[in-house]
């Protein structure tokens, strides 16, 4: 009897750890990105140092997850814990919703110790991407800190994705946002505004279930 219960518990535990999570990966040219590694970009190269972003108010199928995710490229494990193993539809907010922002400071993944809260002004940074673009022998730093929820520049984006039955992970493809480095647009976006809104739109179309 005890042995049966033990096996049952083990079985349930394995099921939970094996199936009830969706890994979240950041990709470039269909390859998983590694922190601090240089990648080929057009005829030159890019080194990505920081990718950090919030996925909040996550709904998988019909059920809302109790916790969101602060993705950090430097962490080995980035995944969403889900109550179901089959994921054919997922909805989430890229960033922190304006109501949470309006209420001030929160804890857990939203604790400002994680470096995702602006200090010179109010509000969470929804998404951070930092690195160096090497072009024609010149190294140029770039940093995109996308956020803001006031004055008509609300950068939270609600994203809805549908996948096939054999979905195994959620991917953020950096191709589109990195393409902006080859334009004349500013390479340092560190405050809310029109450009941050445009980049938030690009990011909203860069998530895929695969």
């Amino acid at each position: 009897m005890i042995r049966t219960i033990f096996i049952l518990i083990l079985f349930v535990a394995l099921r939970v750890s094996a199936q009830d999570s969706i890994p979240v990966k950041v990709m470039y040219d269909r390859l998983e990105l590694q922190p601090g590694k240089t990648i080929l970009f057009q005829n030159d190269s890019i080194r990505i140092d920081v990718v950090k972003f919030y996925l909040t108010n996550v709904v998988v199928g019909e059920s809302e997850l109790s916790s969101g995710l602060l993705f950090d490229l430097e962490e080995d494990q980035n995944y969403l814990l889900t109550p179901v193993s089959q994921i054919d539809e997922v909805q989430f907010t890229l960033g922190v919703d304006s109501l949470t922002n309006a209420n001030g400071i929160s804890g857990g993944i939203l604790d400002p110790i994680h470096g995702m809260y602006w200090s010179w002004q109010s509000g969470y940074i929804n998404f951070k991407l930092e690195g160096i673009h090497f072009e024609n022998g010149i190294a140029e730093e770039f940093s995109f800190h996308i956020g803001g929820f006031l004055n008509g520049y609300n950068c939270e984006r609600r994203i809805q994705l549908e996948g096939s039955s054999n979905v195994s992970r959620l991917e953020l493809d950096l191709n589109s946002i990195l393409q902006t480095l080859s334009t004349d647009q500013a390479k340092k976006i560190m405050s809310p505004g029109k450009r941050a809104m445009e980049l938030a739109d690009i990011l909203a179309g860069s998530f895929f279930l695969r």
């Binding site: 309006a102 001030g104 400071i105 400002p112 110790i113 470096g115 200090s119 010179w120 002004q121 109010s122």
Partner: peptide, 28 residues
């Protein structure tokens, strides 16, 4: 008016390099 909530207020002087030059992480 850059700060919209009292609980976020202290972060500004804490992080400012010409004021307290620290971070909430270091303080914690």
């Amino acid at each position: 008016g850059a700060i919209h909530h009292i609980d976020a207020q202290a972060l500004a002087p804490i992080n400012h390099p010409d004021e307290m030059g620290s971070s909430i992480n270091e303080i914690v």
